[in-house]
Design a protein around this nucleic acid. Structure first.
Lengths: 308, 308
DNA sequence: CTGAAAGCGCTTACAG
DNA sequence: CTGAAAGCGCTTACAG
């Protein structure tokens, strides 16, 4: 109204020039533009959202931003979303069901147009809660949850685990341990299962970490923490124990780390996730689409022959 | 309206029971609550925001989420904000002025109730842009920008730099180099200045990294990258070159890294930042308050005597 | 204790 | 080409 008064027009006209859609006489438009500049007016996105019934915001739920893999996912999501004019509400859950519930409620109340989930607790009800309200959701990197409405961008964890075990077995290892994530993560379960299947195929069963000559971690950050722990207790990596991670975070390639791991492309993953999500949002439907990204084994210097 | 019809009351009454503020007869309240449960109704926060003229959202701008220090800052901000019922809009700027401008505009249009800035470009106009519109802002960890309306939670970078140089000088180093951040960060400048002052006090001037026996990096991630680079080129740390970081990210304590650095407490920093910001928001004023957090030197294994 | 009315700041047919 | 009117889904005095 302030701008309208100053330009001597109605607020409809101001709206028309701002959105640039309707026909507005040149002189009128210029007067309005001048008034906008003079008043430093910025349209109120909240009012626009209320009317439009879309928030132009998406939710992003992540267990732990402190893990560089998730941080990269967050960066990718934010970058892709903002390119399309969407804001992103980030929620840090630590895979705690109570927090996941709160987050779901908050996202629903704020009417996010869609949600990208980077990781959730085992058996989480969050996706269904959202889906049932008509909010599209895509899962990035956390395994199949069985709902056809979901979008899923994922890796082939079982194959990756097979490749890891194959590599280690070829080196001569026979005593393997798997280290699950600290958090009760959905994805953890699937990797562990893949690992066990790969062992079974070779008529092996997992042993405790202290008896193992090869330790497979759920992700890189954990592998790096395990190396720290082993070395503090006087065991050398890889001379005494081989360690394998998962994700290929930037640090994994560092000269002091040189972690053998599985490469995943968080940037590409999040880019695709946003793309699929926004397409669904535009069409007012669920994503209902799944795709796999390649995740090759990267052999570096934390794996070697077992001690004789 | 749906809930109201089902409960046979007006929407005013529904509103009253939801907000729990006005007096509502027991029987009526129960009918309404039942109707809410049956319909799975969730209030529309957008409409509420429009009416209330507050979004219950804060903005968080960060140069690079991939840096664990910033990731921790983000976690702390999100955790503290959600505790108070605020959502956080995260924006990743890479210290690019163009992006900072876009972010500022987006935050203003979305009417965030305040913004926390973890890092911005040198000479950024973002804080003023926000402040001038009446949006409170607090700067975390990036040095003083001269505006009394700002909230500032910071470290004493000059003292930390003095402590670093003192440590190195005591070890016998005389040829120092400083490595600025890749991004054109505000904070980088101040640390560099502190570093130079500390050298000057000892009648020294900085040399290039290849001639230095002691390298001081703007932050840990950079220090870690420098170690990688040096070691790939055959120089040993600390036998040939000492390296010091800044931040004390979790990784700095790792057995394979053991980085000498300056401790900062991102969690505490962000907690305080949110606290100050929300207090200002509630009172409809700017923060206008600054405080320093301690940042002691942590001596680990990347610093030692210079080669003879 | 309950509800009708006004208003938050926009957008969007529609009439002129 | 321009503006009056209705409506998005809430909240909030205020009357009854």
């Amino acid at each position: 109204m302030d701008v309208a008064d100053r330009a001597g027009v109605s607020k409809s006209t101001v709206s028309n020039v701002i959105r640039g859609t309707a026909q507005v006489a040149r002189a009128t438009r210029e007067r309005v533009e001048r008034a906008i500049a003079e008043t430093g007016y910025h349209p109120n996105a909240i009012a626009r959202s209320l009317k439009a019934r879309t928030s132009s915001a998406i939710g992003f739920v992540v267990p732990d931003l402190t893990n560089p893999f998730y941080a990269q996912l967050a960066v990718g999501v934010e970058r892709a979303a903002s390119t399309h004019g969407y804001a992103v509400l980030t929620a840090h859950t630590e895979c705690l069901p109570a927090i996941e519930g709160d987050v779901g409620r908050a996202f629903i109340e704020r009417r996010v147009d869609g949600v990208i989930i980077g990781g959730i607790s085992l058996g989480s009800t969050l996706p269904r809660m959202l889906l049932d309200r008509g909010t599209p959701v895509v899962l990035a990197s956390l395994g199949e949850i069985d709902d056809p409405r979901l979008g899923v961008i994922d890796h082939d964890d079982p194959s990756a685990m097979e490749a890891i075990v194959d590599h280690l077995y070829g080196l001569g290892h026979r005593r393997f341990a798997f280290v699950s994530p600290q958090m009760d993560e959905q994805a953890g379960e699937r990797r562990r299962l893949g690992f066990q299947k790969a062992l079974k195929r070779r008529r092996l069963t997992a042993v405790g970490i202290d008896r193992a000559t090869a330790v497979v971690a759920h992700n890189d950050m954990q592998a790096i923490a395990i190396i720290d722990d082993l070395e503090r207790r006087g065991r050398r990596v890889p001379a005494d124990v081989s360690v394998v991670g998962y994700d290929d975070v930037p640090l994994a390639a560092h000269s002091r780390v040189q972690l053998t791991t599985v490469r995943s492309d968080a940037m590409e993953m999040s880019r695709r996730a946003v793309e699929l999500l926004l397409a669904a949002t535009r069409d007012g439907r669920h994503v209902s689409h799944r795709e796999m990204l390649p995740n090759p084994l990267v052999i570096r210097a934390t794996t070697g022959r077992p001690p004789a």
